[in-house]
Amino acid sequence: MRSAGTLWTRKHLLGMEGLSREEIGALLDTAVSLREVNRRDIKKVPTLRGKTVINLFYENSTRTRTSFELAGKRMSADVVNMSVASSSVKKGETLLDTLANLQAMNPDVVVIRHPESGVLEFLARHLDAALVNAGDGRHEHPTQALLDLLTIQDQLPLLGQSRFAGLVVAICGDVLHSRVARSNAIGLQTLGAEVRFVGPATLMPSQAAEAFGATVYHRLEEGLAGAQVVMMLRLQNERMNSSYLPSVREYAEFWGLNRARLRQAAPNAIVMHPGPINRGVEIASDVADDPERSVILEQVANGLAVRMAALYLLCGAGVRR
């Protein structure tokens, strides 16, 4: 009999790095089961009654925080939100102290978003609670990648695929600063998909091909050619006031996704975006809103289910530690 002991034994969800195909499968399967809960009148199950989940956000993100909060609540966990202004975070000792204080309250899971890469690995070495990475710097954002994988998985039949193997996914935009791109690239590779990174050279990680097994394109048209999944990344405003890019106008002109460019992709290609969208910058409104192509709202719905699944598996994984 398959059981949790063989499929999910991790204490933390720190990233897609290191997750096996089976572990990703377990998480997605659980999420699929939990989606049904979100469609009922009574959108709540008692599974995590008596468990405490703390959302600790060092960066503003109403969407992700709300998604985790709702996920916890629909599983009947007690959810506490803590937002910490980035400006007050200067020293790591403060972070460790904050977490130590939280730990004294004996939470079962702490969900953390932080502007610096690697913070969760650091905390995991010093704290007992199960940690979920809700985005650390430009490193990883595993629940976003998992919800993207679930969204793609739903679309596989329409894309003429039975599996991820051989699927062509183009991740486009500011790859350098994107934890979404990193986590997706790692997860997609684990499942056997072909990953492309498409974007300006100034926004591409060093040695991306070696680091992620991705093929790098600088021209959007080339990167999109034949792609079945087009994943657009959000362009952060602060990139504009630096030497990364000359202007929004130029970026939209060369790397913005519009209808004409989308025709380069595979005939049924789907368009994804982690949100929030910069309309008219990385993606044209008519593409983002096209129900035939855009699965952006499915991504949001799947986000909730994936986060419920993550909390469920982590809350129980402690049993077999």
Binding site: S117, G118, H139, E140, P205, S206, Q207, E210, A211, F212
Partner: peptide, 13 residues
């Protein structure tokens, strides 16, 4: 150091 490891770790190189 800027390279594969920095890219994987998401650390500025």
């Amino acid at each position: 150091h800027e390279g594969v490891v920095a890219s994987r770790l998401g650390l500025p190189g």
